[in-house]
């Protein structure tokens, strides 16, 4: 039952130079793929663009056809109370359970702030959050 909460993020390899994000975003636009949330992680001369989209398989296919290196990454989306302490609650749950956050990014949705998390043990994280009364987005919420 945890699987319902595992969201497929697409991760795209990109060189760090002008126009690369536009190329990725343009390909998704042409394919009519909507982006809910995204972030860019940068390293020495390159980066990885991470995005939650409404059609991950389609996005993967479009970008791969255009020559991008794309892969899926399993993430979870946690609804946060959009007020002081919202992030603290979730971080505490995971920290207490010994689950490590590899990276995170957030967006403000229609009814809540959402924290996207890449953790080392995704199913354990889902169990912990649900058992402590947390609110997770289902993957189907994006499609």
């Amino acid at each position: 039952m945890e699987d319902a909460y595992i969201i497929k993020q697409i991760s795209v390899f990109s060189e760090n130079r002008p126009g690369r994000l536009a190329a990725i975003a343009g390909a998704l636009k042409d394919g009519d793929v909507n982006i809910f949330a995204f972030s860019i992680a940068e390293a020495d001369g390159f980066g990885v663009v991470r995005a939650l989209v409404d059609a991950p398989e389609k996005a993967h296919r479009i970008l791969t056809d255009q020559g991008f290196r794309v892969s899926y990454t399993e993430v979870i989306g946690v609804k946060m109370r959009d007020e002081p302490g919202g992030l603290y609650e979730i971080a505490t749950v995971l920290g207490d359970a010994g689950i490590n956050i590899e990276y995170a990014y957030a967006y403000s949705g229609r009814d809540a702030a959402v924290l996207i998390l890449r953790v080392d043990h995704v199913r354990d994280a889902i169990k912990e959050i649900l058992s402590r009364g947390g609110d997770l987005l289902e993957a189907s919420a994006f499609t």
Binding site: Q9, S11, F13, A41, A43, F46, G47, V48, R50, R69, V70, S71, Y72, T73, E102
Partner: peptide, 13 residues
Amino acid sequence: IDRDVFSGELQDL
């Protein structure tokens, strides 16, 4: 970057 190499994770790269 080869298809097989890209795991999606920055640290692997």
